[in-house]
Design a protein around this nucleic acid. Structure first.
Lengths: 117, 117
DNA sequence: GCAATACTCAAGTGCATGCTTGACCAAACG
DNA sequence: CGTTTGGTCAAGCATGCACTTGAGTATTGC
């Protein structure tokens, strides 16, 4: 089985940088070149390229060179995996809250043997 | 004004660490103390505490002390904000693909062999 | 050919992160 | 009481990250 853990590491790490999120926002409107991505960002082209490489290593972005320009585009599958991890945890938590609500109606707070599932 | 950007920074940064995600997975099953969170993690209690502080600063986790134990629990609102950011970008991208339709699928140099590294 | 464009590579710098150890405090327990 | 248990604070350290500059390569356009 795949080491999904390291993969999620890279995805969340990639999304943790505000500049990279700006790039993702730009890319969600459509493909763009490296220098287009650089435009709103007040940093050197070389720095932007490094960000692109981080995004690519995480799988969030794919790119290909044609001529002298590199065109980047979003890979929605990687976004989906991060989204699913989050929503699964949230769903678990909220389902638990539901159960807890029912228990509080009838039981005293102390329940020593919590038979999980 | 609310700087949602810095907030998302902290949330994604918090989720980028595998140990912290393990803690979130544990917490999604229900509240836990710091030492319970530490149990599967092969690091010192002090280190775990620092992780808890990161999670708390991001808003993903809340905690309160009663007696000598600190009990941590998930705050689903923060999870939801990250989830929404991701799904919004993915939705934009996918809507764009819809609008453009199959027309853009022109000039494939080769068939869909996306070269995985 | 020559110059501008678009990117790429390497090395270096400064600050943030993830961890450690050691001292310390306070609640629980015998 | 004293000891264990659960947590907290403060340095300190090693690594990683986000940049920079400077040089270099491949295309495009004149």
């Amino acid at each position: 089985m795949l080491d999904q853990t390291a993969d999620l590491d890279r995805v969340f790490q990639a999304l943790a940088d505000p500049g990279r999120r700006v790039m993702m926002e730009r890319l969600s409107q459509g493909p763009a070149s490296v220098s287009e991505l650089a435009q709103p960002l007040a940093m050197s082209l070389a720095a932007v390229l490094q960000h692109v490489q981080v995004l690519e290593a995480s799988g969030l972005v794919r790119s290909q060179k044609s001529g002298r320009t590199r065109t980047c585009s979003i890979n929605p599958a990687a976004l989906r995996s991060a989204e699913q991890w989050i929503s699964a945890r949230r769903a678990l938590w909220e389902r638990r809250l539901d159960r807890l609500g029912e228990v509080l109606e009838t039981s005293p707070p102390e329940d020593g043997t919590t038979g999980e599932r």
